[in-house]
Design a protein around this nucleic acid. Structure first.
Lengths: 157, 157
DNA sequence: ATTCCTGCAAAAACTTTGCACCATG
DNA sequence: CATGGTGCAAAGTTTTTGCAGGAAT
């Protein structure tokens, strides 16, 4: 099944219409899925391709995509939401590990998934059906650690 | 060391002045640390005790407290930030596991910490100094699972 | 006395909403 | 042709900022 078909199916399944706008937004998201686009960043890319689209549609579409499980809405504490497509033919739907550098704000992705044992405990002990998880490690990235060794002082956000 | 002393020390260490406002906000946070107060909720409690405090001070204080590692700023995807004190005499500074129910929005706390092995891998492999981590499991809580069994249909946010 | 902090109000930043028109099924 | 989606602009929320006065060291 192609990506486009996947979108069409998902929309139909949920009683939503297929529109040019939704297709365009989906395309752009797919093409930039590694970038964790914010709504505004996405919008900029969208109007390059389809200048007549409104930002409200972008927000409404992202909201819809999130509801039908097409995208994951990240919160990296930078004041806005960032979106990532959860593609069908992957286990991405369940793996979001990120390292957030407190100094430079860089977002580093992590591959490992050692969460399974934790999940099992939680599902049993709390009778909580886990749909997704996010793990964020806040700290200092290697580059900033190096820089720190040169300076070596406090309070310099 | 008392809680008040801890605040005083932490502020001095960072070259910040000790003020009534900061003390009050710290107190209220301590007394309601299980509630994950938002800035606005905190502000409501603060003006009950000290009516002259402004909301700007509340935001500025929370920001400061976060910078000096006194509070953790949570993001539970409910449109605002929620704050939690990281008390000195605890390992709380490193344990934030939460279950977020997609249906009712309930936030359930989890005690387990099986993250240590994952952390070791990350620290070594990415040379990333981990200061804190957050784990969020999104899913359906036990109550909502029960309700679902009665209804049993889709699209009802 | 100097520096930092506060309160107020205004502004900024991000997101949502109302409404008339248009496209999809 | 009925329903749902879009674009625009206006409004809503949460958070930040400028500035003059005030408190802490």
């Amino acid at each position: 099944m192609s990506d486009a078909d996947y979108l069409v199916n998902l929309l139909s399944e949920n009683g939503c219409k297929i529109t040019v706008q939704r297709n365009t937004i989906y395309e752009i998201l797919m093409e930039n899925n590694d970038k964790h686009l914010s709504a505004e960043e996405l919008y900029e890319l969208v109007i390059d391709r389809s200048p007549k689209i409104g930002i409200a549609t972008t927000y409404r579409t992202l909201q819809l995509f999130e509801e039908i499980g097409l995208v994951y809405k990240h919160n990296f504490d930078d004041g806005l939401s960032r979106y990532e497509i959860l593609s069908p033919n992957s286990n991405e739907i369940h793996q979001h590990h990120h390292l957030l550098c407190k100094k430079c704000g860089k977002i580093i992705e992590v591959k490992e998934d050692l969460m399974n044992s934790l999940e099992e405990i939680i599902e049993k002990q709390y009778n909580f059906e886990i749909l997704n998880h996010v793990v964020k490690f806040t700290g200092i990235c290697s580059q900033c650690r190096n820089k720190e060794n040169e300076n070596g002082n406090r309070k310099e956000t």
